[in-house]
Write a protein that binds this DNA or RNA. Structure first.
Length: 748
DNA sequence: AGCACGCCGACT
DNA sequence: GTCGGCGTGCTC
């Protein structure tokens, strides 16, 4: 074929990535008139349907005429996906062993529905009198007085009439319709609206962040400050710096923490609220935010982890608030840790990133100590508010009588607190009435049929509930094994049972129980939290739900009912989680400049985690935990990942999990891999695959999932091992899915 | 035979 | 992710 023929068609080959489960962009022909560039959104034929897609690359040379390719159907009116975001998507897909299309989907879900923004029609008075002037028409014209333009809805509401009256007045020439740009999706933010007065420590930290934002380069920070030390004001200054430069900022928070309180504080500082991004925001609104982020009409987004995939065109700062929170981990669909991916995104964007926490994760602390992150610290509470006083209650020596869980010393502290008109929080991280029910006659223990965990009694609902998979059954009156009556005994406490005990001990106190299965949903929960803040309750009994978010000004006493809970779970992060949680909970005690008090019930006050907590010395905890991790080769000194095998029934999932474990055994070169004994996480230089037998099974979204833990000294080993393993194992059948849960922070 | 359902592989 | 193809098994 001749060059002339080539040029006569002029079509280019473009590679388009579709947001579906494929890894490679597909090649299409594109007519030159479309003038496609990388990042453009297009409609493409894909199989039998039309699909959304994003141009990943455009060939330099014209397409050969014989190219057997389909043609791009249309170019969509969307702002382009920035190069930095496309690079980030490629990187994330590779890191999480996810098809690239699925990674793209995270960034384009909102865009697929983002039709071009319709212009609004506004109505303005012409000054011309209508032919007929009825009282209703007069009210409309009075409302439109002064030449301002109003929407049809606003005018009709102001005049107390229907929209047809407006139309009639337009026909009569008294009103004129005009088009106007759509409402901005968020208000304009003013960095100088209300600058705070910072304490010296805050000022120094803010100064470091501000100069990093100004430098327009990748700059990661750990902002570590005890509860109440004013971290938020500090990172607000960094946001202000981004705004002054006309740049954008993203504030990420764990889903539950995205509260009205934060939005109001933000508005008090910058004059308007930021754009909100989380699962509760409507598709329409999300589409508008997506577009506004890409065109620069939006400067700050506060959102949950999925906000990380917005197409910011000038991102200068990312803040990850409460960076240690496990809610940043996404473990269905594409598995990723949003905190870590935020660091990667910041690197691609040449932006500053601030990881903020009172109790940072071990990984982040290690990165700060090694100099990868700059470590900014706020040691004291702002306004010289004192830290709470922590006291242990040794349950071996001064525990309560059998069948009770509140020790005498805690009980008298509660009584004193009530007498002073102040509030107590009793913290127990266990929902329901009792974690185990057994038959006193035959010893039968109620277990979940689906996953073997103990069934938790929920007395209020008269049910036995599996907290692993959600299975619910009625609590019977007789033993299903030996049919004895009145033989079933509840063992151990849950928050419901604690409430029962509190009601006995303090009959006049107003008691509220809060847990995630609280009846009435999120709306009622928010009301109850407000009521607590107003002092409507004397004793609040709660699970970890009460550890975060809300501020309770009357709260002066915290009782940790079982500090040991969770320390013996075998989870490699149990110590870290417990320390963070108890720190957070006890930190809630205190009012004004009066120190709060926290009583901690424990059977093992000498346990390193409990001892470190009691000493109030977080450094001690980090030092010992980091040393332990280093010795055991655990993250961040080694890599932990998990293969998640899921299916619609437990047996199928387990069968494939076992098949994978067998395949790991036979994998050449065999000596590199070892299937470890269940229930252990031994030290080793080799790659280990921990068999499925001990892995908890959970039912999530109707699918049973098994986890196989993989441990290796280096990140690359895990990735190559997993690739080999998936190739070597029999292909999953029967609706089995295999996903990889990649563990954090070994990528830098 | 005719259809509902579930599994599986292809999609440029 | 979404679709069509095809096998299984059930009903008119």
């Amino acid at each position: 074929m001749s060059v002339a023929e080539d040029q006569s068609t002029g079509a280019r080959v473009v590679d388009v990535l579709a947001p579906v489960a494929v890894d490679a962009p597909y090649s299409y022909l594109a007519p030159p008139a479309l003038a496609l560039a990388p990042g453009d959104s297009v409609k493409i034929p894909l199989g039998a349907r039309e699909a959304y897609g994003v141009v990943w690359s455009v060939a330099e040379t014209p397409a050969p005429a014989h190219a057997n390719l389909k043609t791009v159907a249309a170019r969509l009116d969307r702002p382009p996906l920035p190069q930095t975001l496309r690079d980030f998507i490629d990187w994330l897909a590779r890191y999480t062993l996810t098809p690239r299309g699925m990674a793209l989907r995270l960034a384009t879900r909102a865009a697929e529905e983002a039709a071009p923004e319709a212009l609004r029609t506004l109505y303005r008075a012409t000054g011309q009198a209508p032919e007929r002037l009825t009282p209703t028409r007069a009210r409309v014209l009075a409302a439109a007085e002064g030449g301002m333009a109003f929407s049809k809805k606003a005018l009709a509401e102001a005049a107390g009439c229907g929209p047809t009256v407006i139309d009639a007045l337009v026909d009569d020439g008294a009103l004129v319709a005009m088009t106007a740009p759509p409402d901005p999706v968020a208000g304009a933010l003013d960095p100088a609206y209300s600058p705070p007065s910072l304490e010296p420590a805050q000022f120094d930290a803010a100064k470091a962040l501000v100069s990093a934002v100004r430098a327009k380069a990748y700059a990661p920070f750990l902002l570590e400050g005890v509860t109440g030390s004013g971290k938020t004001e500090v990172y607000f200054e960094a946001i202000a710096a981004a705004l002054e430069d006309g740049g954008q900022a993203l504030v990420m928070m764990p889903e539950i923490a995205l509260t009205a309180q934060f939005l109001e504080r933000f508005a008090a500082r910058f004059g308007e609220k930021p754009a909100e991004w989380h699962s509760g925001v409507s598709a329409r609104k999300r589409a508008r935010i997506w577009r506004a982020a890409a065109t620069g009409k939006l400067s700050v987004v506060a959102g949950a982890r999925s906000a990380l995939f917005l197409p910011f065109c000038n991102l200068r700062l990312i803040v990850v608030d409460e960076e240690h929170e496990a809610a940043y981990k996404q473990d269905d669909g594409v598995c990723y840790h949003a905190r870590d991916m935020a660091v990667v995104r910041a690197r691609f964007e040449h932006a500053a990133i601030v990881l903020a926490s009172a109790t940072p994760s071990i990984e982040t602390r290690v990165n700060a100590e090694s100099g990868r992150y700059r470590h900014l610290r706020l040691h004291a509470r702002a306004g010289a508010r004192p830290m709470p006083l922590l006291e242990p209650i040794d349950m071996r020596r001064e525990g309560p009588s059998r069948g009770r869980w509140i020790a005498p010393r805690l009980a008298s502290a509660v009584a004193e607190t009530i007498a002073r008109g102040e509030q107590t929080l009793l913290f127990l991280n266990r929902r329901g009435y009792a974690p185990l029910t057994l038959c006193r006659d035959c010893g039968h223990r109620f277990r979940c049929r689906q996953c073997d965990a103990w069934l938790v009694e929920h007395r209020f609902r008269r049910a036995l509930v599996c907290h692993h998979c959600g299975h619910v059954e009625r609590r019977p009156d007789t033993c299903p094994e030996c049919h004895a009556t009145d033989s079933l005994a509840a063992c151990g406490p849950g928050v419901e049972r604690l409430a029962e005990e509190a009601a006995t001990l303090f009959p006049d106190a107003r008691v509220l129980v809060l847990s995630s299965d609280f009846p009435g949903g999120a709306e009622r929960l928010r009301r109850e939290l407000d009521d607590i803040a107003k002092g409507a309750f004397d004793i609040v009994i709660g699970t970890q739900l009460v550890a975060k978010g809300h501020n309770f000004p009357q709260l002066t006493l915290v009782g940790v009912v079982d500090a040991d809970l969770g320390l013996g779970s075998g989870d490699p992060r149990a110590s870290e989680r417990t320390f963070q949680l108890l720190n957070q909970v006890t930190g809630r005690a205190g009012r004004g400049d009066k120190p709060g008090r926290a009583l901690i019930q424990t059977f093992q006050p000498e346990h390193p985690v409990i001892a470190a907590l009691l000493s109030g010395d977080a450094e001690k905890f980090y030092a010992q935990e980091i040393a332990l991790r280093r010795r055991a080769g655990l993250p961040p000194y080694g890599r932990l990942a998990a293969l998640i095998v899921s299916a619609k029934d437990a047996a199928t999932a387990e069968a494939h999990a076992r098949a994978l474990a067998r395949a790991a055994h036979d994998l050449p070169p065999a000596p590199r891999y070892r299937v470890a004994a269940p229930g252990s996480l031994p030290e080793a230089e080799d790659i280990l695959l921990l068999g499925p037998a001990e892995a908890p099974i959970a039912l999530i979204r109707g699918r049973f999932r098994y986890r196989l833990l993989v441990k290796a000294p280096r990140s690359a080993d895990v990735q190559s091992f997993l690739r080999d393993l998936i190739d070597a194992a029999p292909k999953p059948r029967g609706g089995v899915r295999v996903q990889i849960d990649v563990d954090p922070q070994t990528f830098l």
